[in-house]
Design a protein around this nucleic acid. Structure first.
Length: 540
RNA sequence: GGCGCCGUAGCCAAGUGGUCUAAGGCAGCGGAUUGCAAAUCCGCCAUCCCCGGUUCGAAUCCGGGCGGCGCCUCCA
């Protein structure tokens, strides 16, 4: 496969890399990314309906698209990424009635929860987060245009999209309305065809409602995405994303609305991430089989709490109390975004064990270089979005063996990212990179201060590449938290005291005492590491 | 019933026509190092669900099985 990752090709190439391949669900093909506007990528990702706290399944899309955004920006694109917030919908109304508070309050609370979780996961690339209720004029106007063009009709205060008028309807998921088994739902009697879907729903008493040409009501689910994507990204934009479960009916209907209205493609690439499922049972996390199981169990509690108790996959908040956001993010990115991810506590633990390899290296780096591997927060706060550009990360090997190897790994890593954002494959190169770095430390005795200046410089440059590449996955930005609270100094003093005692015991070959101190410290959560230069400890 | 996806070592997982007698991680096993450990380094650990076909050549393409999963219900 042709890539432009060789150093010589890069230096003369334009700012934007032409080698990025994207898989498109609509055409079922992988093809080079060609954007509507040169150097600019518009991405629309279907966001959450904010009626309940988020679970881990809701993070899959944001994490992968955050990573894609980073990679595109790094590759020279100006990225505009929209994630919508659905803050008006049947479930929101139900939740507000159950809790006896206004729908808007539920939405605000849950949007806050969602955003807090995003930040915890390192998702900070989003450009716009438009809310449906703040785009009513746009939505109503869009519906009006569809009616005007004959693609939609009004029926007793409801407005439906007329599927029969769209010759291409069903092209995304390869289905025809007449093959479907559904009977059209509650509003079936008002519809011309069972497959017609609501653009506008007339309000029942005591429901939130907006004024429209068809009376008081609220928008249907799909129309907000057509209206808001047009407002922010234009009639035709580059990438539309979402979970695989949204292909039908949601995305199919978005395509119908937007493409009938504009006689133009809605998005040039449709990207769908795989769903997450629970490890011990069938069904995706939060999905149908979960709901069925909960129903069968006759639980009083809502279906979603049942999921959290039975699968351990419930509220993100509790998950993030057991695992760092970085760990969860890495767990998600180790699998290709189009694959199903099987959720399990063990899988998360394993991701953590893998990350420890890097954390250990960062400590070695600090001992050698005398400064943290992580960038100073002040250095990154201005533009944490982009640590470096692809072209700036090119390595001058200057005949150095280490740098030559690092350059090779970097090229391999970038080639995998170029190929439909293969984060799992790319991550493997990160492990090879850290292994190379560790080997260099061993061979050159860098921790004993033995290396030459040139060797140290090469090591520093190679480490810089590790930071550059890991930043693309959105990991290793901030120091990991070890120890806790304001007692850190006191803890350190106590441990140092015990280490002094142990050192004396070892000097006297009193290994029984030395081992007892180490074992008891281990039991207390302090892990020791004896080195030539002295004993290191950390809260493990 | 219709439309799709998936099946690679004990586990997770990349690869989707030759460089694959198949990456990487976790676990495990040998060795170096260590007073013993830990960490690190070196080494070991799979012929790709089954059967048939296409091809000079298949984990990769086609057909048929078996097994798992999703959508067709306003679920990311």
């Amino acid at each position: 496969m042709a890539t432009s990752t060789s150093p010589s090709a890069q230096s003369t190439a334009p700012a934007v890399t032409a080698a990025i391949q994207v898989y498109d669900t609509l055409t079922k093909t992988k093809r080079p990314l060609k954007t509507v506007r040169p150097g600019h990528v518009g991405i629309y990702l279907c966001g959450p309906t904010v009626y309940k706290e988020a679970h881990i399944g809701h993070m899959v899309g944001p994490v992968i698209f955050d990573t894609i955004s980073r990679f595109l920006r790094y590759s020279g694109y100006d990225v505009e990424w929209v994630v919508n917030i659905t803050d008006v919908d049947d479930k929101l109304i139900a939740e507000s009635q159950r809790r006896g508070i206004p729908m808007a309050q539920v939405a605000t609370q849950m949007t806050g929860d969602y955003c807090a979780n995003l930040l915890e996961m390192g998702v900070d690339q989003i450009t716009h987060m438009p809310r449906a209720t703040e785009n009513m004029n746009e939505i109503i106007a869009f519906i009006g245009e569809l009616i005007e063009q004959g693609f939609a009709y009004e029926a007793e205060g409801d407005v439906f999209f007329d599927v029969a008028r769209d010759a291409e309807y069903g092209k995304l998921t390869n289905r025809r309305p007449e093959d479907q088994q559904g009977e059209g739902g509650k509003a079936a009697t008002k519809k011309r065809n069972p497959g017609d879907f609501a653009l506008w729903k007339t309000a029942k008493p005591n429901e939130p409602a907006w004024e429209s040409p068809w009376g008081q009501g609220r928008p249907g689910w799909h129309i907000e995405c057509s209206a808001m994507s047009r407002r922010l990204l234009g009639k035709t934009f580059d990438i539309h994303g979402g979970g695989l479960d949204l292909t039908f009916p949601h995305h199919e209907n978005e395509i119908a609305q937007s493409e009938c209205c504009h006689s133009a493609p809605m998005a040039n690439y449709w990207m769908h991430n795989g769903l997450m499922r629970a490890g011990d049972a069938a069904g995706k996390v939060g999905g149908k089989s979960d709901r069925d199981q909960a129903a069968e169990a006759g639980e009083q509690a809502t279906v979603d709490t049942k999921i959290s108790r039975s699968k351990g996959a419930g509220g993100l908040r509790s998950l993030l109390s057991r695992h760092t956001g970085e760990r969860v993010r890495f767990f998600l990115l180790r699998t290709h975004y189009r694959s199903t991810i099987v959720f399990s506590e063990e899988g998360l633990e394993e991701a953590g064990a893998a990350l420890d390899k890097f954390y250990t290296f960062f400590e070695r780096y600090e001992r050698i270089m005398g400064r943290p591997f992580y960038l100073d927060p002040d250095e990154t706060k201005e533009d944490r979005r982009l640590i470096t550009r692809r072209v700036d990360g090119e390595i001058e090997t200057a005949g150095d063996e280490l740098l030559a190897e690092v350059a090779k790994l970097r090229a391999s890593y970038l080639a995998k990212m170029d190929d439909d954002f293969n984060t799992g494959g790319a991550a493997s190169d990160l492990f090879l990179l850290v292994n190379t770095l560790n080997r260099t430390i061993e061979q050159q005795g860098l921790e004993q201060g033995k290396g030459t200046e040139a060797q140290k410089a090469a090591f520093a440059r190679a480490s810089e590449t590790l930071r550059e590449l890991s930043a693309l996955l959105g990991i290793f930005f901030k120091p990991i938290q070890r120890g806790g609270g304001g007692n850190e100094q006191a803890l350190a003093n106590c441990v140092e005291l015990l280490l002094t005692m142990r050192a004396e015991a070892r000097k006297n070959k009193d290994f029984a005492t030395a081992d007892r101190i180490r074992n008891d410290l281990t039991a207390a959560g302090i892990v020791l590491e004896d080195r030539k230069e002295g004993t290191l400890w950390k809260v493990g």
